[in-house]
Computed example of a mutant assay.
Amino acid sequence: MKAYHQAANYLAERLNGRRPRIAITLGSGLGALADDIKDPLNIPYADIPGFPQSTVHGHKGQLVFGELGGQFVACMQGRFHVYEGHKPESLQIPIRALRLLGVELLVLTNAAGSIHEAMGPGSLMLIEDHINFSGVNPLLGGNDDDIGPRFPDMTEAYNKHQGVVMQTAAGELGIELFRGTYLWALGPSFETPAEIRLYRQWGADAVGMSTVPETIVARHCGMDVVAVSSITNLCAGMTGQALTHEETLREGAKAAEKLSRLIKRWLEAQ
């Protein structure tokens, strides 16, 4: 309890009474959306008590507060991954701190690989469900019933109503928004072709190394979640080409403009 209360108290002091209702987490190559925030207050993660530190290239590592799409939002410009060495339970701190600040709705974005050729690089996919193939859970350890139940329900991990609002916004902008199931693999190595064949049989549509732990923590503490994947590549074994993080950043940047327009239109509909 102490860590996220300390973080929330520090942020509340910096915000001078303003409280965001919506928070947005930006994935690899997608940090440019934060540049569109009006009158931004930038707070490096390193300044926030108890916050983990982002170490991955393409993740700037700061919280940005300000106006976007007519809403006062908190934007996480860079996220944390278990493969960086963070303990799974440490991922609770940012989400719970934002919840204490008043955030009710969490928007998650990520860079992901596609299992379907028709959903190629540059595509966007609304996440309707997920598969946790990481072998870990961010709620490991003791549970505080004042935050959430010991065994939280994940039947509707992603808010259906907000998913419809996101689809409507995409239609208004003429953006094709695929829908599907996201699989969380621990990383940092990319998947093998054999693993991708297995994931396809399980019903996964896109694969990545994030998002699911944030969703679990957010749902546990009462936040609604809506999530969109930016497809940066076809998965291992589908093209004959090797996968690289540089490709992820490059293709993520290409999709950033489209995703930025989508999220801003979605925010305007709130």
Rank of each mutant, 00 (worst) to 15 (best):
V225Y: 06
S229Y: 05
L259S: 02
Q241V: 02
C235P: 00
H245F: 10
A236W: 03
C235H: 00
H220G: 05
M238Y: 07
G252L: 01
A227S: 15
A218D: 08
N233A: 12
A227N: 06
V226F: 09
C221Q: 04
A256C: 05
M238R: 07
K264C: 07
C221M: 03
A269C: 06
N233R: 06
H245D: 10
L249Q: 09
R250P: 03
L243W: 11
V226R: 10
M223L: 15
Q241A: 09
I231C: 09
S260I: 01
D224N: 13
R265A: 10
T215Y: 07
T239V: 06
T239H: 02
G240Q: 07
S229R: 12
G237D: 09
T215C: 15
T248Y: 14
T248A: 13
A255G: 07
G237T: 01
T215K: 10
L249E: 09
V217Q: 01
I216P: 05
A255F: 13
E247M: 09
T232N: 13
E251T: 10
Q241I: 02
M223Q: 11
K258A: 07
A256I: 01
C221H: 01
R261N: 06
K254L: 15
L262N: 05
K264M: 12
I231R: 12
L259V: 09
I263S: 04
K264V: 12
E247S: 11
G252R: 11
H245V: 11
S260K: 04
T248R: 08
R265L: 02
R265D: 01
T232L: 07
E257A: 14
V225M: 02
H220V: 04
L234G: 06
T215M: 15
S260W: 00
R261T: 02
I231Y: 12
G222D: 00
S229V: 14
A253K: 11
A236N: 05
S260H: 03
E268V: 00
R265I: 01
E247I: 13
R265M: 01
N233D: 14
V217C: 02
R265P: 01
R250Y: 14
E251R: 14
K258Q: 14
T215Q: 09
L259W: 01
E247C: 10
A242L: 15
C221S: 03
L243A: 10
K264S: 04
E257P: 00
A256R: 08
A256S: 12
A255M: 06
H245M: 12
D224C: 03
T239P: 06
A242I: 13
G240P: 03
L262K: 00
I263R: 11
L262R: 08
I231P: 06
V225P: 00
A256E: 12
C235W: 00
V225D: 13
E246Y: 08
S260A: 15
D224W: 00
I263M: 00
E257M: 06
T232G: 06
E268K: 14
A236C: 08
N233K: 11
E246T: 04
E268T: 05
V228E: 15
T248P: 03
R219C: 05
R265E: 03
M238E: 11
V225S: 04
H220I: 10
C235F: 07
L267Y: 11
E257L: 12
D224A: 05
E257Q: 11
G240D: 02
G240C: 02
S260R: 06
V225C: 14
